[in-house]
Amino acid sequence: MSFKTKMIPLAGAIAFAFAGTAAAEDLVVKIGHVGPVSGSIAHLGKDNENGAKMAIEELNAKGVMIGGKKAKFELLAEDDAGDPKQGTTVAQKLVDAKVNGVIGHLNSGTTIPASKIYNDAGIPQISPSATAVPYTNQGFKGAFRVVANDGQLGGTLGRYAVQISKAKKIAVIDDKTAYGEGVAKEFTKGAKGKGAEIVVTEHTTDKSTDFSAILTSIKAKNPDLVFFGGMDAVAGPMLRQMKALGLNAKFMGGDGICTADLVKLAGDGIGEGQVVCAEAGGVLDAQKKVNEDWKAAYKKKFGVEVQIYAPYVYDAVMTMVEAMKQANSADPAKYLPALKKIKYKGVTGDISFDDKGDIKDGTLTLYTYKGGKRDLLTVTK
């Protein structure tokens, strides 16, 4: 064998060694994100996923150091289609991929069953949008959320319906999901507590498109206000059919309907000031410019307006990474204690968690729709 022949594998070995050394200097951090990027609320899932992409790209551009190593962040994005069964399937997929943390899911109905899988694997999870109270009531030490829960949101809407909208007779509809039933239940408690009469409670599904029977029954009760616990994909057609039936009651819902797309989905059923909804988060005056600048950057990057929760996804990623930096480790067991006591100022405001994993001092933003756009009513705690 000639000398030249011997040198070829040696050179290859040296190149491989240098490549291995370079790779060893980087710390690969895998962040999972799950949302419904297919199905009727794909526009919301994509919005959330875009928020995660912005955070990951920004972190990689900054050259974040964790435990003395430069971190290379990878986003493992999965689609749960808003379906609990698919949600648990992709949750296990992320666990098998050994992600360092998970941001998601979007819906309470997928977040809750998936949370057990992450908990059993010891992987911290921050939901940017799941509001159902049971999510953080399970006692899972790694389950967090950066938005207010249904107890706060539904209760506030219930009080608003009576005190501000002056509703006395209210009809309640839910979509039978964990989120829809939960927010409707909390709304009912809040409204009843302020003296309103719930004249009828009806149920639909998150895939229904025909509400004529339900709305005809409701119209006979002559309510001042209809509350819907569900998502915008159902609320839009429901508003169209309310107008067609001449059901002129005000319409109220939680964060699931409180999107930019509701105008398009509802058409002329949206009315002027007829719809009131609440975002399970809110930006106070001191943080408004930061939040508005972020939304402008989002629109420049993706060519569309923020739907609702992209900024909260961005903040959830940044909060998780800040805990890793403080712990000098991306190992879930090592950074979880830092996450529990984190104090982080995000684009949506100050983020810290209580003993259950709920955000402390969560804010809510109430909107109506005027001139084909969401119109701010108030920010409250």
Rank of each mutant, 00 (worst) to 15 (best):
V183K: 10
L10G: 04
S115W: 02
I41Y: 06
V276A: 04
R145F: 11
M238W: 03
L377I: 15
P237V: 05
A97W: 00
S38R: 04
A15D: 11
K300R: 09
F144N: 12
G51K: 01
G180T: 10
A249S: 07
G190H: 00
E202S: 10
G190Q: 03
A81P: 08
V183E: 13
G195C: 00
Y298W: 00
V183A: 13
A213K: 12
F228Q: 08
P237R: 06
G253Y: 06
G67N: 03
K70Y: 02
M238A: 01
H43P: 01
Q326A: 12
A77C: 12
D83S: 12
V199H: 07
T378Q: 15
I41M: 09
V29Q: 09
S108W: 03
M7C: 10
M324K: 00
G357L: 07
G158V: 07
G357D: 02
K192P: 07
G154E: 15
H203D: 12
E57I: 06
T319R: 00
K341A: 06
I126Y: 04
G122I: 01
L376F: 10
K250V: 00
L366M: 09
L339F: 00
V172D: 13
E78Q: 13
G39S: 04
N50W: 04
P124A: 03
S108C: 12
A178C: 06
I257K: 05
K373I: 02
F3C: 01
M7A: 14
N291R: 05
G154T: 14
D255L: 06
A130D: 15
G269F: 00
I14V: 11
N60M: 03
T319S: 10
I126W: 03
K250E: 01
D285Y: 07
D358N: 14
A235I: 04
M242W: 01
A280C: 11
D261A: 15
S38K: 09
K85D: 15
G246H: 06
F144K: 02
D285I: 09
E25Q: 14
K85V: 15
